Simulated assay, not measured.
Amino acid sequence: MFAELAVGGFMVLLTVLIHGVGIFGLGRFLRIEAREEAAEHIHPMSPHGIMVTLALVFGLFTLHGIEIWAYAVVYRIVDAIPTFEQAIYFSTITYSTTGYNSEGLDAKWQMIAAIEGLNGFILLGWSTAFFVTVVARMGRR
């Protein structure tokens, strides 16, 4: 059980770090874009503004993808799931808290899946809060 908690704790720290750095980078990108839009009098709902919003969504999606793949790599390293494809699928449904079941997962590593579910819930919430804040600010310009 200690190994599961240690690996799970490490993964929480790693994914929060990845997410924090990614959100920081996206925030910088958005501040630069906002200055350019203000200087050039570009409306947020213009084609340019829509492309910026799509870039933000893609950036958030990419962050979550990196974090899901990181968990999948761990599942393979500890040999908790037989193939990488299965590990990616399992990690995706666990991270997104869909979590159908732990079929195919080695029972001694189930705590990592539980931790991933909680971790994914928090990180998805963080992204949602960030996105809603950005969209609300766009509406005020």
Rank of each mutant, 00 (worst) to 15 (best):
residue 26 L to D: 15
residue 8 G to Q: 10
residue 106 D to H: 09
residue 120 G to I: 01
residue 90 F to N: 03
residue 97 T to N: 05
residue 23 I to W: 08
residue 11 M to Y: 03
residue 87 A to V: 02
residue 126 W to V: 09
residue 18 I to V: 05
residue 76 R to N: 09
residue 122 I to K: 11
residue 20 G to E: 00
residue 84 F to A: 04
residue 59 G to H: 12
residue 119 N to K: 02
residue 35 R to A: 10
residue 8 G to L: 14
residue 111 M to K: 01
residue 12 V to D: 08
residue 116 E to I: 05
residue 56 L to P: 08
residue 13 L to A: 05
residue 11 M to P: 07
residue 46 S to E: 14
residue 127 S to P: 07
residue 20 G to D: 12
residue 24 F to G: 01
residue 86 Q to P: 10
residue 72 A to H: 02
residue 138 M to S: 15
residue 38 A to I: 11
residue 31 R to I: 04
residue 69 W to Y: 10
residue 45 M to W: 10
residue 20 G to V: 07
residue 115 I to Q: 00
residue 14 L to F: 01
residue 52 V to P: 14
residue 72 A to I: 10
residue 96 S to R: 02
residue 29 F to K: 13
residue 63 L to M: 03
residue 85 E to M: 12
residue 134 V to G: 04
residue 134 V to L: 15
residue 125 G to N: 07
residue 107 A to R: 15
residue 104 G to A: 06
residue 8 G to K: 09
residue 136 A to G: 13
residue 46 S to F: 02
residue 11 M to S: 01
residue 76 R to H: 03
residue 111 M to V: 05
residue 51 M to N: 11
residue 113 A to L: 10
residue 118 L to Q: 04
residue 113 A to H: 00
residue 75 Y to I: 08
residue 39 A to R: 15
residue 116 E to M: 05
residue 68 I to D: 05
residue 127 S to C: 01
residue 138 M to V: 06
residue 124 L to V: 08
residue 47 P to H: 07
residue 111 M to T: 07
residue 89 Y to R: 05
residue 23 I to F: 04
residue 12 V to E: 06
residue 9 G to M: 04
residue 4 E to G: 12
residue 19 H to A: 15
residue 62 T to A: 12
residue 1 M to E: 06
residue 20 G to F: 08
residue 130 F to R: 00
residue 83 T to A: 08
residue 68 I to T: 06
residue 36 E to D: 05
residue 6 A to V: 04
residue 103 E to M: 13
residue 77 I to G: 07
residue 5 L to Y: 11
residue 40 E to K: 14
residue 119 N to H: 06
residue 24 F to V: 09
residue 39 A to H: 07
residue 48 H to N: 14
residue 58 F to A: 14
residue 98 T to A: 14
residue 22 G to L: 12
residue 34 A to C: 13
residue 80 A to D: 03
residue 73 V to G: 09
residue 81 I to E: 12
residue 47 P to T: 05
residue 84 F to V: 06
residue 97 T to A: 07
residue 96 S to G: 00
residue 56 L to F: 11
residue 19 H to Q: 14
residue 110 Q to T: 15
residue 55 A to E: 14
residue 15 T to N: 13
residue 30 L to S: 07
residue 98 T to Y: 12
residue 27 G to Q: 10
residue 14 L to D: 03
residue 18 I to W: 02
residue 32 I to E: 10
residue 73 V to Q: 06
residue 16 V to T: 01
residue 98 T to M: 15
residue 9 G to S: 02
residue 28 R to P: 12
residue 31 R to C: 03
residue 81 I to V: 03
residue 71 Y to R: 06
residue 60 L to M: 12
residue 23 I to H: 05
residue 21 V to D: 02
residue 20 G to P: 11
residue 49 G to P: 11
residue 33 E to Q: 14
residue 67 E to Y: 00
residue 122 I to C: 11
residue 2 F to K: 10
residue 119 N to Y: 00
residue 138 M to F: 00
residue 58 F to V: 13
residue 17 L to E: 03
residue 11 M to Q: 11
residue 17 L to P: 14
residue 8 G to Y: 02
residue 25 G to M: 08
residue 130 F to M: 12
residue 88 I to G: 05
residue 24 F to Q: 02
residue 16 V to W: 09
